[in-house]
């Protein structure tokens, strides 16, 4: 406290005013503690709960070991990883050239793109499935393959990826870069690959991490189309043995936490950290 005041007093302007403001009202602390509790208590409970209900002589990590031993755990986890990576790949191939092209040549289309990017909020997953089912049931070869999930998740990831790319492209002097590349003789695909992509690296990595978070956590579509993704597996296991479901929850918590932490470190607390992918 003494240190804080001395720092404040070294500032020339109105130090009395500053010191008065440095005292934190007690209700501010109450709200901060309350929010911290809301965040932390469920996580603590998950850890605690997943280590209980174990019989004497068994490892305290019994439920984790049981889950890891289940071949369905591995297969569903890999299926989800695979779907996530496919979603990222399709999203990037579809979105990066499109957003780049709109910024460069069709700026008039940007309001249309903005509008499309909020449509996935207007049509939440459960509603989209209702509309997609009759269409998918007609294309059986696609309907039975898990890749169909990736194709649908591209839509859910669209708002987040679009916003990341849009912000990334707005931050660079696109026209100058493209003209410089052209005057050096580069064709458009080469310009995109060698000049624009490196400049968009942060936006692409950030958008991709959010996309992975969405695809890994998605339950609605996967369960209704009857694919055993990680979240569907978690649900099935958890409704029969709550302890195992909670252990699986902790694993996905670690996963989301890792993805968001890398996103945060990447953005260094800037606007990127405000990116939120909604997967419920």
């Amino acid at each position: 406290m003494a240190e804080v005041t001395s720092v404040a007093e070294t500032r020339p302007s109105s130090h009395r005013f500053r010191r008065a403001r440095n005292r934190v009202p007690v209700w501010h602390l109450i709200w901060l503690v309350l929010a911290a509790l809301v965040f932390i208590v469920p996580i603590y409970s998950v850890v605690q709960f997943s280590l209980t209900g174990v019989q004497a002589g068994q490892s305290p990590f019994h439920w984790y070991l049981t889950v890891f031993d289940d071949p369905m755990f591995r297969s569903s986890f890999w299926l989800s990883i695979q779907i996530s990576l496919e979603t990222v790949a399709v999203s990037l191939v579809l979105m990066v050239p499109t957003v780049f092209w709109v910024h460069l040549r069709l700026p008039g289309l940007r309001p249309v793109m903005d509008l499309i990017s909020i449509l996935p909020f207007v049509v939440p997953p459960i509603v989209l499935v209702v509309g997609l089912l009759p269409f998918l049931e007609k294309i059986t070869w696609l309907f039975v393959r898990p890749e169909v999930l990736s194709l649908i998740y591209v839509i859910f990831a669209l708002p987040f990826l679009y916003r990341a790319l849009d912000a990334g492209l707005r931050a660079i002097d696109l026209r100058t870069l493209v003209e410089a590349a052209e005057s050096l003789g580069a064709k458009m695909p080469r310009t995109l690959l060698r000049v624009i992509l490196p400049n968009l690296r942060a936006a692409i990595i950030g958008g991709s991490l959010l996309t992975v978070a969405i695809a890994m956590g998605e339950y609605t579509v996967a369960s209704l189309l009857e694919f055993s993704t990680f979240s569907v597996y978690t649900y099935t296991i958890g409704t029969s043995t709550a302890y195992e479901g909670v252990a699986l929850s902790f694993i996905s918590f670690i996963f989301v936490w890792g993805a968001m932490l890398s996103l945060y470190l990447l953005g260094r607390g800037g606007r990127n950290a405000a990116a939120v992918a909604i997967t419920h």
Binding site: G217, T234, S249, F253, A259, I278
Partner: peptide, 17 residues
Amino acid sequence: GMAANFAGVPLGFAYIA
């Protein structure tokens, strides 16, 4: 940022715990 993304099935089980 982390908590806003921790939703769905894992969140449900977290609160059951």
